[in-house]
């Protein structure tokens, strides 16, 4: 079974954040915002499992797919050593994507850290009346793809944890203030769980359509091994859904944070 793609470009976006541009008609032709690819970082036994990485951008004309990841362990560290021209084994696209907005709708995305990448893809594929992006980063140096977000969104709000750029503190504060004044048709969120919890809860309370993209340690990436469990409502009870197959994008009201 062959999932080979050719690496067209690699780029360090900021400290510890890397972009790989894959050439793959298979992935580019099928991918939708919110989906991921499951890549093999080594042929050997070190970093044995594949690593799920979200898709940040797709260029259908040139059959390229950008994936962005943070170097935060054995597998992603090996991925950093891949270079232009190398072959990368990437299964996918996998998982369920976001529900795209309709033409006249107004949407907001709320992203934190590496959670911003699938949201860029979503914004670029959303052809709707108004797009607002709320992005949170640790510090000014960690801000990535600001120009790309600026081009696709009518309004861009950035917050940094240390106040070195934009709003000082968590991105949920300016988002919540905005939500008091505005009533968007759809809100999408991806990033740290505490952030998504606040966004999801606020939207559910106000009856605003909201989808969030979850993360969990995965095994197979296709729904067979059942390890990437995520707690969801099941009537008055709960059950475990699986991030790779049932998600990674879930309706906010379904999740139990």
């Amino acid at each position: 079974m062959n999932f080979d793609t050719i690496i067209r470009k690699t780029e360090k976006l900021s400290e510890g954040i890397y972009l790989i541009r894959l050439h793959s008609a298979r992935i580019a032709s099928k991918a939708v915002p919110g989906q991921f690819v499951n890549v093999r970082c080594s042929d050997g036994l070190n970093a044995y499992l594949r690593r799920p990485i979200s898709i940040c951008r797709v260029d259908r004309k040139n059959n390229t797919v950008d994936i962005v990841f943070m170097n935060r362990g054995k597998g992603t560290n090996l991925l950093c050593s891949f270079a232009q021209g190398d072959t990368l084994d990437a299964m996918g696209p996998l998982g369920n994507g976001f529900t795209l907005p309709k033409e006249k709708e107004r949407i907001a995305v709320v992203g934190g850290g590496i959670g911003v990448f699938p949201l860029l893809y979503l914004l670029e594929e959303s052809h709707c009346a108004c797009k607002t992006a709320f992005l949170g980063f640790r510090t000014k140096e960690a801000i990535v793809l600001q120009d790309a977000f600026h081009r696709t969104a009518q309004k861009l709000v950035i917050a940094t944890d240390d106040g070195s750029y934009g709003t000082n503190g968590l991105i949920t504060a300016p988002f919540m203030a905005w939500l008091e004044a505005e009533r968007p048709d759809r809100v999408y969120s991806c990033g740290p769980a505490p952030m998504m919890k606040i966004v999801a809860r606020a939207c559910v309370q106000k009856g605003i359509f909201c989808e969030v993209s979850m993360e969990q340690r995965m095994g197979c990436g296709i729904g067979a091994c059942l390890v990437c469990a995520c707690k969801v409502q099941d009537g008055d009870d709960y059950q475990y859904a699986h991030v790779c197959k049932d998600g990674p994008v879930f309706p906010a009201e379904r999740l139990i944070f």
Partner: peptide
């Protein structure tokens, strides 16, 4: 089933 994380490499 059990709560996550359910897998460790």
């Amino acid at each position: 089933g059990n709560p996550p994380p359910r897998i460790a490499e």
